[in-house]
Design a protein around this nucleic acid. Structure first.
Lengths: 342, 342
DNA sequence: GTTAGATAAGACAGCGCTGTCATATTTGGG
DNA sequence: CCCAAATATGACAGCGCTGTCTTATCTAAC
């Protein structure tokens, strides 16, 4: 075959060689009904032979699908976002879609998003925290009726799908686990208040404490921003207080790593002198010494699920309405928590 | 203005309202010559009013630019790739381009790339190690004459631009620094042999050793794969050998972190009992206790530079030929290396 | 005062697909 | 055996831009 290097075949080449119309080729490629088996096979054979793949741009321009998924994040760093990307990419590959990544750093930065949305008609976009809580962003998406899936809990927006774990319940159980290990004075480091999960996790913690008759005094809770440094700083406050907690529950693993580092810097042994619990099951949790007990979120699967929702919703408008998928979390017990002998 | 929500303005809307032809609008938007100041202003004003942004798909289909930059990585995890993405994104935003990310996991996986390339005509692609060393990938890119910039050293390919630091020299100096601190028995953990930089760094190490009359015995060098675990394993070998090195130079920070963890697990204090040196200035290097002395690569700037090269090369074919940009590295001295008192 | 070249602007086709509509053929229930 | 519905296919326009070509006007050097 004239599979000239560097020269791409077009749909009309395939049509000609297969002896059918372009439209039939298009039907085969898009898995539409009303194509006979023999033509379908013929088209597929020719397409394979020519190494034909439809042009993204042409499809996007002509049809009402773009085969592009947008991912908007606040900050592309960290293991969390890597996992989100991996999950999305996995499904995109299967579905023949492409992932366009962009950063929406400042809050309320809908101007940038609006520009992007004016130039790309995404099949759907995935939002990760805290972008998924930015009402300006959400509004921009809504205006253009872009199918949107938000990963993580956040502001109410019943018209947009949401994928999450039950952060409240997970934090509740994590705290109960600590209590079950004999801890009574359990410190808590809050997450970035801009992230929807932060409040849920905090409430899970305090409800669990109260449920077991433990008081959550002010010196037991410290603010945090989900960063290593903020975890370190918060731990300093907690660990230097006169009545040191025997365990610290940090709202994510990066902060938990900060806690471990801080404790060690202060000459405290983890988990001997202080137990540490994290959240997310980040890469960091596995490499710290000791490895950090944490709550695993199946982030990759959740992200893949987001793409599934988008793809399923194709066509049917409002298919994403009131759609909330809750994934299971898992308490991962490692070495950073010890049982307190009464 | 009739800035209807959800409805995008097109170039013909702008043309009509500005009282010029579509082509003139196009000229303004693409910064072409031969447009008078007054029309230019008028067009810009109308475009701003309508919140107009040209359709990516239409531009890509009609013109010979796609405004899409591809980034192909082996594995989207880790601080390194995050930095690459950030650098690319920064420039893309300025240039009105978009970033399409994809994973090319298996070596020699040119089939997947060929498919992608058949469907998207990238303005250019950025390859990070070890994808940039995959000759099958390089060939696929060459066939379709896609402007390609490779970040990191690797196989010779004078037709593709390359952005790197002098890994050899950096490793040489890092080793010399260790020697200058009084270390004589310096262990070395190699990088993943699939990455071009691995050999350079190893040679920098061994040349420096020899230059200072130190022998590089076999039990001083251990294989590694750039991962935390491989660093840990390599450190075990090195640290348990009868004649323990006083310093270990790991080919990247993730492995260096593994070395620190292993040393501590073996009851050795860093840097008191063993000094540790890393490479990259990864996030991990800053959070370990002690923080790891390392070689900083300005990865973000390098990635941004890659986009610059692509954009500059626009049009002029062969503009990327024989183009190699060397960035400066920097020795970042932290706490993981101590001076040996003679 | 010519005229070549630079400058300014528009007409028009067409990039490679898909949506819509028209048409032909087959199926099956009464 | 007939006709409506299901099935199978193609013709054709057009998505929203840009490349090419044409035309008109303006310089400035001789």
């Amino acid at each position: 075959m004239d599979d000239l290097k560097g020269k791409n075949a077009t749909i009309s080449d395939v049509a000609r060689l297969a002896g059918v119309s372009m439209k039939t080729v298009s039907r085969v490629l898009n898995n539409e009904k009303y194509v006979s088996e023999d033509k379908k096979e013929k088209v597929l054979a020719v397409a394979a032979e020519l190494n034909y793949r439809p042009s993204l741009q042409a499809r996007g321009l002509a049809g009402n699908r773009s085969f592009m998924i947008g991912l908007f994040v606040d900050d592309p760093s960290g293991d969390y976002i890597s996992k989100v990307q991996r999950g999305i990419l996995r499904r995109c590959e299967e579905a023949g879609c492409y992932l366009v990544v962009d950063v929406l750093r400042e809050r309320g930065n809908d101007a940038k998003l609006r520009q992007i949305l004016n130039s790309i008609r995404f099949d759907g976009v995935v939002l990760s925290s805290p972008v998924c809580d930015d009402v300006a962003v959400l509004d921009a998406l809504r205006e253009r009726s872009v199918p949107t899936v938000r990963i993580g809990p956040g502001v109410d927006a019943t018209d947009m799908a949401q994928i999450e774990i039950d952060d409240y319940k997970a934090a509740f159980e994590a705290t109960e686990f600590l209590i079950g290990q004999g801890h009574q004075r359990i410190g808590f480091i809050k997450g970035d208040p801009n992230h929807g999960c932060s409040l849920d996790r905090e409430q899970g913690y305090s409800k669990a404490m109260r449920a077991h008759g433990l008081t959550v005094s002010n010196d037991l809770v410290a603010p945090g921003m989900f960063s290593f440094d903020s975890g370190y700083t918060a731990a300093e406050k907690l660990l230097k207080s006169e009545s040191r907690p025997t365990a610290i529950f940090a709202s994510n693993d990066e902060m938990a790593a900060g806690v471990v580092a801080c404790a060690q810097a202060l000459g405290l042994r983890v988990p001997l002198d202080v137990s540490v619990m994290g959240f997310d099951d980040d890469f960091l949790a596995t490499i710290m010494s000791p490895a950090i007990t944490t709550v695993r979120q199946p982030i990759e699967d959740m992200a893949a699920g987001a793409v599934d929702l988008i793809l399923e919703a194709k066509g049917k408008s409002a298919a994403l309405e009131d759609k909330t998928v809750i994934f299971d979390y898992e308490l991962v017990k490692r070495k950073s928590v010890r049982k307190l002998s009464a």
